[in-house]
């Protein structure tokens, strides 16, 4: 098993290490198409040019296709709600459990109760068609439906062991299949759309297919050769939880910031938070630091560590704490300073 967010983060860091640039908080608002080619990608932060454009826009992929006048599929959002339990429940089961009765053929394999690599139990996901493509909220009814179906899989689980619940939206085509292909109408566009379950499992293979498509497309115009300096290995920064006590001891003596615990529930140190903020793709929001280091993912859900994480981001980024956001955009954590 892997932690899906850690896999994604590792890939992003590795891409940046190898020269890719990632523009966050950048929304595509239009595509300039001339003579059957995309000549520019218009965003809220300016215009980008590329020889090849890959449309991997998830739940918005069909809208992006439409901007290129090449919409031959439709994405509809299918929401999945999941709940996660306190780590102390990790001993209640060692394996992932699924049951025939929660399968919903054609829509989902049914989820189940699985053990995360950190030792929490993960219930779900559900699968419900929703109108809103960014509906990441939950409702009482959705959570009750989830618990009703999944909780009986492990008779020792109780609702009060749940520390968090959340939702994601799958990007589903009406054919219930992946779209991984060159555009037939636009010469330099590749669609990677409708990637739903088993999307994570399939992602490495999809990536290789897309690479081949990109290379073939580029070779029509320019020479393409392998870069000898390309390094496919990304070394993950140290994490206290993965170290023996002896290794932990040596790390702290080398860098005392690893001795200062910021998140008490998940035992995350200042050293880890600082490393996340300074990673190849910098984690500059409270949510980004959370996903990288697990600060705030424990039983207190950030009650104790949020002020410390906020201050560390402000310090490392040399910005006032009042500028720090939860996850970019207008999600400011604070309204100002006291005594104003």
């Amino acid at each position: 098993m892997v932690a899906p967010d850690q896999v994604t983060i590792a890939c992003a860091d590795n891409a940046v290490q190898n020269g890719a640039r990632i523009f966050l908080n950048t929304a595509v608002i239009g595509l300039d198409v001339e003579g059957g080619r995309i000549t520019g990608v218009r965003t809220n932060r300016g215009r980008l040019r590329g020889r090849v454009v890959i449309n991997a826009a998830g739940v918005w992929a069909d809208r992006v296709a439409e901007l290129a006048d090449d919409r031959f599929y439709t994405i509809h959002p299918r929401k999945g709600v999941m709940a996660i339990t306190d780590r102390s429940t990790g001993d209640l089961q060692r394996r992932s459990l699924g049951m025939m009765w929660i399968r919903r053929p054609g829509r989902t394999k049914g989820g189940g109760v699985s053990r995360t690599i950190e030792g929490n139990l993960l219930l779900g996901p559900t699968a419900d068609e929703v109108p809103d493509r960014e509906d990441h909220g939950t409702s009482c009814e959705e959570l009750e439906a989830l618990l009703h179906r999944h909780m009986p899989l492990n008779a020792q689980l109780r609702p009060d062991q749940i520390i968090a619940y959340f939702a994601g939206v799958r990007a589903v085509t009406f054919e219930e299949d992946f779209v991984v292909e060159e555009s037939r109408r636009v010469a330099n566009l590749i669609h990677v759309a409708g990637i739903q379950s088993p999307g994570l499992t399939a992602a490495p293979a999809i990536a290789e297919d897309v690479r081949d498509l990109v290379v073939a497309m580029l070779r029509r115009e320019v020479q393409v050769r392998a870069r000898p300096e390309f390094d496919p290995c990304r070394k993950s920064p140290p994490s206290l939880s993965g170290l023996t006590l002896e290794e932990r001891h040596r790390l702290i003596l080398r860098n005392p910031a690893y001795g200062r615990i910021v998140c008490r529930c998940e035992e995350v140190s200042e050293g880890e938070v600082v490393a996340a903020i300074g990673s190849p793709l910098p984690a500059t929001t409270v949510s980004a630091v959370k996903h990288r280091t697990r600060t705030g993912m424990g039983r207190c859900q950030g009650g104790f560590c949020t002020p410390s994480v906020l201050k560390l981001i402000a310090r490392e980024m040399a910005v006032p704490a009042t500028r720090v956001t939860w996850q970019g955009g207008d999600s400011l954590m604070l309204a100002g300073e006291t005594g104003e």
Partner: peptide, 29 residues
């Protein structure tokens, strides 16, 4: 979450003690 509040997950939801620390120790509103 432990009292099963639902909806979106934006910035600006604080446990009272966290808000108290921001106000009284950090000087942040």
């Amino acid at each position: 979450r432990q009292v099963f509040i639902h909806g979106d997950r934006p910035a600006g939801v604080y446990p009272a003690g966290t808000a108290q620390r921001l106000l009284n120790i950090e000087g942040l509103l």
